[in-house]
Structures are given as structure tokens and as C-alpha cells.
């Protein structure tokens, strides 16, 4: 469960988050939408404690991100990064099982390799991929590996940052489907940032739209098309005219 109250964050004179309030119930899938520069990634980094907010509070299962036991806090999360963020110098199996090879409960190489192969299979990749390096894989395969890494330690909460950016429509569909299946199967709480409306419809239980540093609209994905909110309507229908100014 993630609870965000009155979150503010500025970078110099630029206010990015201006009082964000949000609640994501355990086991639910929340998708955050909004134009570029509306603070979606900043919100996500605040939740992970990679950025410290100026004011407001965040609680993840009742724990503040800036807790003294950061490792235990971060152990709750898995994350799929926009560009995959795979470690170039490590083979795929070590990327996938990276967390399992660290810390007090670290597994042996053979156990970690076995889990990596199993997770790779879960995201539709052959076992041979395990011994390749990230540079040898296509963009779609890298996303799948990123997804396998995000779920390797079976986290309670999974973040997906622009999971379909840079992929063709068919591969986007495959990734969306995988994310939905995995989240349901694991019963994880999911938070996804995306511009891709097909991802929103495939992944979300609930949707929140960020605009000018606040949550402009939030509700169930099924209510999105009849929200009556002009900002959300303009965004989801990709209309150039409306209350959201497009810089041309």
C-alpha cells in the first residue's frame, strides 16, 4: 500500500510537484499518465527515496522511504526502467538475479542462475539468453530481461517506467500483456508511468493523471472515457486543442 500526502518538490525555481495526493491499495495496479515534464518520474523517484521531497509525506506499507533501514525498504520493490538499465558488464543471468547475489541471504551462483533462467522463461526468453550480454539483445528482449529482473526477488511492489517506449506495437502489446499477467499472478502492487494509452488500458486498475504538479484526475480505468474532465479527455484522445497547452 502506498500513501502520498501533499507532496511538494521543486528544482530551483521550477516547481515539479505541487501538492500530490495519492493512494494505491495493496495488490492494485495504478497507472500514472500525463504530459512530458509533469513530474511522473520525479514522483516515482520520491517514492523510492532517490529524491528527497521538499515537503509532504510518503508511506509504503507504513514505512517512510528515508528510513534508516534502506535495504529492507528497497527489498520491497522491483523496477523496470525505461531503457532497461541493464548492467552492460554482467551476463544476463547475473543481471536478472543481481539482488539474489547480494546481501545476507545471497544465493550460490548455480541457484541464482537457475532462478534467472526460470524468470527469463516466464517473460518468454529462451534459457540460452541467460549467458549472453545486454549489448547482444534487441530492445524488446532487453525490456523482457528488465522485467525478469524486476520480478526475480518476487517483490511486493513493482514500478514500471515507460515500459513500452521505443518498442513496436506488437512488442508493446506483448510487454503489456506480460506485465498484467505477472502483476495478477504475483498479487503485487504495481505503479506504471506511461504515455501509451494502450498500456494504460491493458495494465491499469486505476489511473491518475498528473498535470502542473497535482493529480488532475484519478479514478478507475473504466471511468476514464466518461470522466468529464477536459484535461483527461484531451490527453487520452490525443487532441492538440484543449486546456493543456502544447508548445509548437
Amino acid at each position: 500500500m502506498i500513501t502520498i500526502k501533499d507532496l511538494h518538490k521543486s528544482f530551483g525555481p521550477k516547481t515539479v510537484l505541487n501538492g500530490v495526493n495519492m493512494h494505491i491499495a495493496a495488490g492494485h495496479s495504478m497507472v500514472i499518465i500525463g504530459g512530458s515534464g509533469t513530474g511522473k518520474s520525479v514522483l516515482l523517484k520520491n517514492i523510492l527515496g532517490l529524491i528527497t521531497p521538499d515537503s509532504g509525506s510518503i508511506e509504503v506499507n507504513g514505512i517512510d522511504p528515508n528510513t534508516r533501514n534502506r535495504d529492507a525498504f528497497l527489498d520491497m520493490f522491483g523496477m523496470l526502467f525505461q531503457g532497461g538499465a541493464l548492467f552492460d558488464s554482467l551476463p544476463i543471468w547475473q543481471n536478472v538475479s543481481f539482488r539474489l547475489l547480494q546481501g545476507k541471504h545471497k544465493l550460490s551462483n548455480s541457484e541464482a542462475h537457475e532462478i534467472a533462467v526460470e524468470k527469463l522463461r516466464r517473460v518468454g526468453l529462451r534459457p540460452e539468453v541467460a549467458d549472453q550480454y545486454p549489448g547482444e539483445l534487441s530492445g524488446g528482449m532487453q525490456k523482457r530481461v528488465g522485467l525478469a529482473r524486476a520480478i526475480a526477488a518476487e517483490p511486493e511492489i513493482i514500478f514500471f517506467d515507460e515500459p513500452t517506449t521505443g518498442l513496436d506495437p506488437i512488442m508493446s502489446g506483448v510487454i503489456n500483456e506480460l506485465i498484467r499477467e505477472i502483476v495478477v499472478e504475483m498479487g503485487a502492487t504495481a505503479m506504471t508511468i506511461t504515455h501509451d494509452m494502450s498500456s494504460v488500458r491493458a495494465i491499469a486498475d486505476e489511473v491518475a493523471m498528473l498535470h502542473e504538479g497535482v493529480v488532475q484526475w484519478t479514478g478507475k480505468v473504466g471511468d476514464m472515457d466518461n470522466s468529464g474532465d477536459p484535461y483527461l479527455d484531451q490527453f487520452i484522445n490525443a487532441r492538440p486543442d484543449g486546456p493543456i497547452e502544447a508548445i509548437r
Binding site: 520493490f77 548492467f87 547480494q102
Partner: peptide, 16 residues
């Protein structure tokens, strides 16, 4: 390059 490609952030989220 690791910073640009978010690998440093990935390390942090992997409790490293």
C-alpha cells in the same frame, strides 16, 4: 554512461 542510462538508479533500487 551508467548514470545516463539509469544503471546507477537501478543499483540503488536493487539495494546496492
Amino acid at each position: 554512461t551508467m548514470k545516463v542510462t539509469e544503471q546507477i538508479d537501478a543499483l540503488t533500487t536493487l539495494s546496492t
